[in-house]
Design a protein around this nucleic acid. Sequence first.
DNA 1: TCGCTTTTTCACGATTTGTTCACGCGTTAG
DNA 2: CTAACGCGTGAACAAATCGTGAAAAAGCGA
Lengths: 220, 220
Amino acid sequence: MAKILIVDDEEKIRTVLKEYAEFEGHECDEAEDGMQAVSMAKSGNYDIIIMDVMMPKLDGYYAVKEIRKFSSVPVIMLSARVEEYDRLFGFEVGVDDYVTKPFSPKEVMARIAAVLKRSKPAKTSSIVSDGLEIDMAGRNVYVDGEKVNMTPKEYELLFYLAENKGIAISREQLLSNVWGYDFYGDDRTVDTHIKMLRSSLGKYRDKIVTLRGLGYKIEL
Amino acid sequence: MAKILIVDDEEKIRTVLKEYAEFEGHECDEAEDGMQAVSMAKSGNYDIIIMDVMMPKLDGYYAVKEIRKFSSVPVIMLSARVEEYDRLFGFEVGVDDYVTKPFSPKEVMARIAAVLKRSKPAKTSSIVSDGLEIDMAGRNVYVDGEKVNMTPKEYELLFYLAENKGIAISREQLLSNVWGYDFYGDDRTVDTHIKMLRSSLGKYRDKIVTLRGLGYKIEL
DNA sequence: TCGCTTTTTCACGATTTGTTCACGCGTTAG
DNA sequence: CTAACGCGTGAACAAATCGTGAAAAAGCGA
């Protein structure tokens, strides 16, 4: 399923996580400090890294900073204290998620699944059409070179349409793929978000085409 | 309509669900525990599986995990307790929907309908003949390179004929496949839409051939 | 908790689309 | 030859869809 690097100085924790992850069908490597983690991240092509914050030699925080210099691999942090939260996110290290100790292995597995699910569509990098630039990897959208700020749903909606550019997408498909298979909501919800998305796209609002009786598509 | 596998250790529940589902036009098989379900899912080509969580031998949760190893068939879970919710969804087992007991059979049927509708695959192909181009994925039709705008019914009608190009289609078939099995309307309705479609196709209007006493076909 | 942002719901109206139906014309069967 | 039938058509009427704004609900950080 995915190749995972588990970084923690406590062997017990590494082992538990590894067992669970392998049961889920993932392939796992282990590292016991930040230095090891950085060098392994360089060579091994990991889909995700799970890292403890407090470790000897190089702590998780600086390890991620190092790793970020050459890779954008998703990282999930393990932290003993809630206070770490601020440090991690306040410094914008680029962590995808974090779990506080003590944690249940199940919880960590759920985070892994979630992160993998999220990072899957991010593989298609960037699309440019006229003055409209959609940078999925960096989660940026530019209209005539100027960055546009959008809400999360707007990004997701736009990215999904962009991944399927030129293809007719029904509201059902949108709800199921952008909102999630367990979303049971109003069809108008899609319309409303399309409205906002169009408004964000300004002069390129017509790139999003309404297919009456069906749904929408984006023409790029 | 669809082939359904119903899995529950209580015969009473199986019977009720089966009756309702068959009334809806579905074909049903039954299994009374997780082991049976897994092996039946392997051989039988089910469109959807409805499964209880609590069962002897192999519970619904692990049964789905097993089934997921070889199939992505949609699964709807039945559960006695709301607390199961977290377990199912938090762990990302790959369940499509979830109903808590006690449930009304109608509710389950509604979920089935919703899941089936979602998993319906999108049309993909594209057909070109002379100067007539039919792009089903993008919902486009071009006459000599120029895009033609049509109404939803026109697209659907044309696409259905195109998928069956060269084959005679009766009005009954058209009504039941383009309009829906539950449409009880006038035969002239088809004629009217054929008229509009021909008008949209301009010089290629004769690609749609009337088969007197039978119906229509498209020649591409 | 409060206040702000984002998401979702919902009802309304403008507009597009779908359906019915009667009539005319050509074809076919008797 | 002619009556019945099948089809095309236009126009009236009925229904559905979409965009929108406003308000409720949910989420989220301080």
